[in-house]
């Protein structure tokens, strides 16, 4: 279980907090979509969970342990169990699909083995399995620059899957994709989530996607949680409170 206990985040020199007094408990099996306008604090919230963003006040508890107070080695260990998917993919250019996916193992292996690029047979089998799961096995040896946006995001998902994560964190993973591809990528995410019984927290702008896939929706505005509940109770009134204007879906 992951708990956010009164979490507040200020960026340097900012007068207003990016996230303010957030209390949340996240449980295995939940597929949580975070909605909110740009600047609502969605990315900051996600990034506190794998310590990419330190909290200013409050605490993030990972199975009861305060993430902020963990030694760096333990933080790295936790990150290696939290698969993160980024809006702009953050793939390593000039490397192949397979090489990018293999970097998902870096947190679990010795530095020397990573530096020389030695991977054993079970790791090679794993990368093939993961690439098959996201439908990219036939593109394993292609350089990532040659892929479309949707394919790049599937490489991002495959990299996260290589981590054998307990948690999926998605920082607007489909915001750069066209609606059809976005739905297909979201479908892959949900399939993997269901098969592996993960805990997923995904930022998304598309309310319809959240309604279709989420088991729980969190609405953020001005860094505060405005809505936390099931997607079927997310009516126009709630959306208006989250976005500050009426949203027709």
């Amino acid at each position: 279980m992951i708990e956010l206990d009164d979490v507040t985040v200020y960026y340097p020199k900012a007068e207003e907090p990016a996230v303010s007094g957030v209390h949340l408990s996240l449980y295995p099996g939940e597929f949580v979509c975070v909605l909110g306008p740009s600047g609502a604090g969605k990315s900051t919230l996600i990034r506190t969970i794998n310590a990419l963003q330190p909290v200013t006040e409050g605490q993030v508890l990972i199975q009861g342990k305060n993430l902020q107070q963990m030694p760096e080695a333990d933080k790295r260990k936790w990150r290696s169990r939290a698969g993160m998917i980024f809006q702009h993919f953050h793939l390593i250019p000039r490397l192949t699909v397979q090489q990018n996916v293999l970097t998902g193992l870096f947190g679990k292996r010795r530095s020397f083995a990573n530096a020389v690029g030695f991977f054993n047979e079970s790791e090679k089998q794993k990368v093939r399995r993961v690439l098959e799961e996201v439908g990219l096995l036939d593109m394993a040896q292609r350089r990532v620059e040659a892929l479309s946006g949707g394919q790049k995001q599937r490489v991002g998902i495959a990299r996260a899957l290589m981590q054998e994560p307990e948690v999926f964190l998605g920082d607007e993973p489909v915001a750069s994709l066209d609606p059809g591809t976005a739905r297909s990528v979201f479908g892959i995410l949900k399939d993997v989530h269901d098969k592996q019984h993960l805990m997923s927290l995904i930022n998304v702008h598309d309310v319809a996607l959240a309604r279709s896939f989420a088991t729980r929706v969190i609405g953020l505005a001005g860094g505060e949680v405005i809505y936390d509940g099931p997607p079927d109770q997310l009516d126009n009134g709630n959306l208006e409170r989250i976005y500050g204007k009426s949203i027709h879906t």
Binding site: N50, L52, R76, K77, W78, R79, S80, R81, A82, G83, M84, F86, H90, L91, I92, P93, L95, T103, G104, L105, F106, G107, K108, S111, N114, A115, R159, Q163
Partner: peptide
């Protein structure tokens, strides 16, 4: 990519290298 390497739990040096 540096942030991605950090997010998979990679060490700083290996993350920078790759």
């Amino acid at each position: 990519p540096q942030e991605a390497m950090k997010s998979v739990g990679s060490g700083r040096r290996i993350g920078n290298l790759f």
